[in-house]
Every structure is written in C-alpha cells, then in structure tokens.
Simulated scan of single mutants.
Amino acid sequence: MPYEWQIDTAPEDSGAVSYRLRLWPYQSLPATGFVWFIGITAGLLSLPMLAVVGTTALWGLLPFAGLAIWAIWFALQRSYRKGQTYELLDMNHNALHLQRHDPKRPVREWKTNSYWVRASLRNGPVEHYLTLTDGQREVELGAFLTPEERVALRDELQDRLGRLRR
C-alpha cells in the first residue's frame, strides 16, 4: 500500500506514543521503465519510416513522429511531478498535525487536538471518501488512494486514535 506508519515511543516512565503516517500516490512506472518505454516507442515509430528513407516523404513524417515521442515524454513527466505529492500525519496524545505537500504549491496544514478527531468514510466526490474531522473542520485524507486502501486506512486510523485516547 502506498502509505506507511512509524511509531515513536517515549521513555518507559512516560508511556507516551506518537504515530507518523506518510501517504503517497502509487507510481506504476519506475525511472528505468520510463527510459525503456521511450526507447522502445521511438524504435517502433521509426520502423515504418525505414520504408521511406531517401525520399521526401521522410521529411513529412519525421515531425509527426518527433511530436508523438515528445507528447509521450511530456505526459509521463507530468505524471511523475504529480507523483511527488505526499501527505504527513503526525499524531500524539495531545495533537494531530496533517500536512499536504504538492509540487509548486504551498504546504497545506491542519492542526487540532487528537482527542476530538474522528475518521469517517462517506460517498462524496469519490467512493469511500476518507475525511478527518474535529467537529469544526473537515479535511480529506488520501485522495490518491484506491477505495479499498481508504477503507483499510480508516480502520487503522480509528485504531490508533483509540489508543491515543486511552
């Protein structure tokens, strides 16, 4: 799953626990796969042009092949930039701090008392829309996760929030 929990425990005498959750979008094509995909696509696009090498038709087809390779490159690079989005959720007995980091945008933050926070799922803009609320403000968490991952995350969040309240 594209999220991971870190648990920090304080010294034995205090018994305090804090949790850190890091969420990120799933990346299906690693950097080496990107290089291979662009190379193979360029090679396959050049195969039909071998038939017109030495003719003026090559110069008519070459810009379109170059444009196709550039469009694929641009789309994949844009996808990688969106993949740099991540969310950090820090929780302890007294506070909850949520940060969303998007490329080329300021960091969005939400701070509240962790005692009052509730995690809930509802059908809104997407299936199993995961939100956190403290009764005054409601924020979305894990918009880039699949519906099944949001359900699992909600269960884990409720469990950890319950442990912090005890």
Results as ranks from 00 to 15, higher is better:
residue 1 M to H: 09
residue 2 P to E: 06
residue 4 E to A: 09
residue 8 D to G: 03
residue 9 T to E: 15
residue 9 T to D: 14
residue 10 A to G: 15
residue 15 G to V: 05
residue 18 S to H: 00
residue 20 R to I: 04
residue 20 R to C: 04
residue 22 R to K: 06
residue 23 L to E: 04
residue 24 W to Y: 10
residue 25 P to I: 02
residue 25 P to W: 01
residue 26 Y to I: 01
residue 26 Y to D: 09
residue 26 Y to K: 12
residue 27 Q to Y: 01
residue 29 L to N: 07
residue 29 L to Q: 06
residue 29 L to M: 13
residue 30 P to W: 00
residue 33 G to Q: 09
residue 35 V to K: 10
residue 38 I to Y: 05
residue 40 I to C: 03
residue 42 A to L: 06
residue 42 A to G: 07
residue 45 L to T: 05
residue 47 L to S: 06
residue 48 P to S: 12
residue 48 P to G: 12
residue 49 M to H: 09
residue 54 G to Q: 15
residue 55 T to G: 15
residue 55 T to W: 15
residue 56 T to I: 12
residue 56 T to G: 11
residue 58 L to R: 10
residue 59 W to L: 11
residue 59 W to F: 15
residue 61 L to D: 04
residue 61 L to E: 07
residue 64 F to Y: 12
residue 65 A to S: 03
residue 65 A to H: 00
residue 66 G to N: 01
residue 67 L to E: 02
residue 70 W to S: 04
residue 72 I to P: 04
residue 72 I to H: 05
residue 73 W to Q: 05
residue 73 W to D: 06
residue 74 F to M: 04
residue 76 L to F: 13
residue 80 Y to I: 04
residue 81 R to N: 14
residue 81 R to M: 15
residue 82 K to M: 14
residue 82 K to D: 15
residue 82 K to I: 09
residue 82 K to P: 04
residue 86 Y to G: 10
residue 88 L to R: 13
residue 90 D to R: 10
residue 90 D to W: 12
residue 94 N to P: 01
residue 94 N to G: 01
residue 95 A to D: 03
residue 96 L to A: 06
residue 99 Q to C: 09
residue 100 R to P: 01
residue 100 R to T: 13
residue 100 R to S: 11
residue 102 D to R: 12
residue 102 D to S: 12
residue 102 D to M: 10
residue 104 K to R: 13
residue 107 V to Q: 08
residue 110 W to N: 07
residue 110 W to G: 07
residue 112 T to P: 00
residue 113 N to Q: 00
residue 113 N to D: 00
residue 115 Y to S: 02
residue 116 W to H: 12
residue 116 W to K: 07
residue 116 W to Q: 07
residue 117 V to K: 03
residue 118 R to A: 10
residue 118 R to G: 07
residue 121 L to S: 11
residue 122 R to E: 08
residue 122 R to S: 12
residue 123 N to T: 07
residue 125 P to I: 03
residue 131 T to R: 14
residue 132 L to W: 12
residue 132 L to C: 13
residue 132 L to Y: 12
residue 133 T to C: 08
residue 134 D to C: 08
residue 137 R to C: 05
residue 139 V to H: 08
residue 139 V to W: 06
residue 140 E to Y: 00
residue 141 L to M: 11
residue 142 G to M: 10
residue 144 F to D: 13
residue 147 P to D: 14
residue 147 P to A: 11
residue 148 E to S: 11
residue 149 E to G: 07
residue 149 E to Q: 14
residue 149 E to K: 07
residue 149 E to H: 09
residue 153 L to W: 06
residue 153 L to G: 03
residue 157 L to H: 02
residue 158 Q to C: 00
residue 159 D to R: 05
residue 160 R to Q: 00
residue 161 L to M: 02
residue 162 G to N: 14
residue 163 R to H: 14
residue 164 L to T: 09
residue 166 R to N: 13
